[in-house]
Design a protein around this nucleic acid. Structure first.
Length: 437
RNA sequence: GACCCUAUGGUCUAGCGGUUAGGACACUGCCCUUUCACGGCGGUAGCUCGGGUUCGAUUCCCGAUAGGGUCGCCA
């Protein structure tokens, strides 16, 4: 039987990077085994659920390229879905829960208590066979010794997570539960519930958590925790996915940058590491640079135009060839697309704002006649192309008996306002003779 | 407090009884480039501690320590 796995987020907050990694590992396992990846929305906390959060889940998974075989097609709980095991929103599955609770009640496996319904939990230690951690024997804690039973239906009639999670996994024929290690202790409850329903529990794989750089648990409030930070932050999905693959998993062949297809081929549950991993933003940025550098020009161009538009620069107001030539000088230079407007915005702005540190260093009295001479030499050029500009600048430098850098820096600053940027000669060519002079 | 998981440089990791402990990010020196970036060649830095087992432990076992998780009418 082909594995059926699921990602079952609750839309009580925006999708975070840890959730995305859990989704990724489920997706990888499904793709590796030829199984099915199910997306289920656990919206039982009516007070905290938002449709906006569902949107972010769907958009985030799509952005990462983690397509699901079954699950909702829209963020509307009553909207369309695909798959034979729907609905895929728990808010639409209440009848199932009611029936199952009824069964437990009638068999004396659950009972009412202060308006709520509690499950009769065994007092014996429960063995949790886990594909990544190994066999775990979970004993009761001291508080559980006092009362091991737990609520499965709240006094307001709403079923709780432990119950609905198990019922849905059971009814959706989920074979492997791949989830964060924060669920490991709770799995004893889930196994007991499966047994109460007379069903063999699925196989479990509890994956390590992603921690903040300081080792504390990453929560929604932490820097870089939200998926939207990457989606809106100028990142490439392939870089984010690649980086996520490297947290608690490794191809074991010293590769860092690895095509997703290769990960799909090599990925398996037993090879997942058992220790929590701290999120290393620098390494993500490095991967981002690696992927950004080898983007096709079309995609690079498209992403640049989009990023510039977001920062208020409308490239449509410029000739297509000009825009392309300008962006070509940035290829391989920038990592994040959000850097672009600062890096290359001068191509698209009327006035140049001079970097003050640069101005202090380069706009000094003795540079004025030098720049004047350089300008005159440029003005005399017929073919205003990079190669000619370079030889001209170097010739002028020689005549002035100064190093090329003495001209390069003030020229760059004068034309772009920046102290760093694309190749000077190429950017001058793109800007064109008139504007440069 | 109890229960559970974990432990290789600052970070992510390779290693699965005998290795000069390998790679990557970060940091750093030099080269390339008279910007920045890329690239090339170097460098600093690691097996948490204590007991066993063994001829021999980073590797196996136990303990300690540390970190993380869980014990909710949140998920």
């Amino acid at each position: 039987m082909k594995p059926r796995v699921r990602f079952a987020p609750s839309p009580t907050g925006f999708l975070h990077i840890g959730g995305a990694r859990t989704a990724l590992f489920n997706w990888l396992y499904a793709r590796h085994t030829g199984g099915t990846f199910v997306l289920r929305i656990e919206d039982t906390d009516t007070a905290r659920n938002t449709q906006a959060a569902v949107d972010v889940i769907l958009d985030g998974l799509r952005w990462l390229g983690l397509n699901w075989d079954e699950g909702p097609l829209t963020s509307d709980a009553t909207g369309a879905s695909k798959g034979e095991f729907g609905p895929y929103f728990q808010s639409q599955r209440k009848e199932n829960y009611r029936r199952r609770v009824e069964a437990l009640l009638s068999r004396g496996l659950a009972y009412e208590s202060e308006g709520a319904i509690k499950f009769k939990m065994t007092r014996d230690p429960i063995l949790i066979p886990d594909l990544v951690v190994g066999d775990v024997e979970r004993k009761l804690t001291d508080r559980e010794e006092i009362d091991p039973d737990f609520v499965i239906v709240r006094s307001d009639g709403e079923p709780v997570f432990h119950l609905v999670n198990v019922i849905d996994d059971l009814e959706m024929n989920i074979t492997h539960v791949i989830r964060g290690e924060d669920h490991l202790s709770n799995t004893a409850k889930h196994i007991a519930l499966f047994k109460a329903f007379g069903v063999e529990p699925p196989k479990y794989a509890h994956i390590p958590l992603i921690l903040n750089p300081d080792g504390t648990k990453m929560s929604k409030r932490d820097q870089g925790a939200l998926m939207t930070a990457y989606m809106d932050g100028g990142y490439l999905p392939e870089a984010v996915v690649n980086y996520l693959c490297l947290l608690s998993w490794s191809p074991k062949d010293n590769r860092e940058k690895i095509p997703l297809a290769d990960v799909v081929e090599k990925f398996d549950l037993p090879q997942i590491l058992r220790a929590n991993a701290k999120f290393d933003h620098d390494k993500l940025l490095w991967l981002q640079g690696e992927y950004a550098r080898e983007l096709s020009s079309d995609r690079f161009y498209e992403l640049c135009v989009h990023a510039l538009a977001k920062s208020g620069i409308d490239t449509n107001q410029f000739p297509v060839d000009y825009v392309k030539a300008a962006l070509d000088t940035c290829k391989g230079k920038i990592r994040l697309f959000t850097e672009l407007s600062a890096y290359a915005g001068f191509y698209f702005r009327e006035n140049v704002e001079y970097n003050s540190d640069g101005a202090k260093k380069d706009f000094i009295p003795e540079n004025k006649p030098r720049l004047q001479k350089l300008r005159d030499a440029f003005a005399a050029l017929e073919d205003f192309v990079a190669a000619n500009l370079e030889t001209t600048l170097k010739t002028v430098a020689k005549e002035l008996e100064v190093k090329a850098g003495v001209l390069v820096h003030p020229a760059r600053l004068a034309c772009t306002g920046n102290t760093a940027g694309p190749s000077l000669y190429h950017l001058l060519e793109v800007l064109g003779k008139d504007r440069v002079l």
